[in-house]
């Protein structure tokens, strides 16, 4: 059995880097999160890009670098998952591939918004277009993340070892998060603000923060268990 501590340390570093770079870039520097209302007028959108030109490009650049750090984190997850699966580790591979999709769909909108901010003298219609394109691409595709969580849950529930890699209730919680991110395909229907718009209660606040809550709980469990995990479990089975 390989030593898990280096893996867990790399995962923790990745998690911290993602959080600092993505949250810092999106919430603090560029001001893209929480999302602006889709009902903003074209003039308001254009003035947002013109007035915050440098801050937007800096923040978005930081954020897309941050998304890259999600990959080591997710691949390490697959390492733990693969030990449970017999034969070809289908769900572990699937989880890692879906992580790639998540990273791409989280990072790509940043380049679209950067393009909108790139030439300040671009015509207002085009800035509004890129703004919408970026937000719809950012808020709508949740399937990659949902599949990741379903894979984690399936493997977690199949894990019959005395010390499973995550507690069983974390698998059920992962399934709940997968259900929680499910309404995001409704985003493109609503131009006006509301619970299903891209800044809405269900499509942003629940869909964005329930996965974060799950990851925070995971790392709290890992932190509690860090000293005793040479035995082969990730977060301890009693918790």
């Amino acid at each position: 059995m390989t030593d898990r501590k280096p893996l867990i340390i790399v995962a923790t570093i990745s998690m911290v880097m993602t959080t600092i770079l993505y949250a810092g870039g999106m919430f603090y520097i560029s001001g893209f999160l929480p999302p602006p209302s889709p009902a903003l007028s074209q003039i308001e959108v254009v003035s947002f890009y013109q007035q915050n030109h440098t801050a937007i490009i800096t923040g978005l650049t930081m954020a897309f670098v941050g998304t890259g750090f999600m990959l080591p984190l997710c691949v390490i997850g697959s390492v733990f998952m693969a030990e449970v699966e017999e034969g070809f580790p289908y769900f572990s591979v699937m989880q890692a591939l879906c992580a790639l999709a998540t990273v791409i769909f989280t990072a790509l909108p940043n380049f679209i918004w950067m393009t909108a901010a790139f030439r300040v003298d671009r015509s207002p219609e085009l800035i509004a277009l890129l703004h919408d394109l970026g937000w719809i691409m950012w808020a709508t595709p949740s399937w990659g993340f949902a599949f990741q969580l379903i894979c984690v849950a399936v493997v977690g529930l199949k894990d019959k070892r005395p010390k499973p890699f995550i507690p069983r209730w974390m698998s059920y919680l992962a399934l709940w998060v997968a259900v929680g991110v499910a309404p995001t395909p409704l985003v493109p229907f609503f131009v006006e603000a509301g619970p299903f718009a891209w800044n809405g209660l269900f499509t942003f606040w629940v869909a964005f923060f329930s996965p974060i809550l799950w990851i925070i709980i995971l790392f709290v469990l890992i932190a509690i268990n860090i000293r005793s995990n040479e035995q082969g479990d990730l977060v301890g089975s009693r918790l």
């Binding site: 069983r168 209730w169 974390m170 059920y172 919680l173 709940w176 259900v179 619970p195 209660l201 269900f202």
Partner: peptide, 25 residues
């Protein structure tokens, strides 16, 4: 299992928000 209860209760909380949004709107 307690995990199933957790899933169900969490899901019911999301639906509680739906009911709240419906009454509000």
């Amino acid at each position: 299992e307690i995990g199933v209860w957790l899933f169900i209760f969490a899901d019911m909380c999301i639906f509680a928000m739906y009911f709240g949004v419906f009454v509000w709107e």
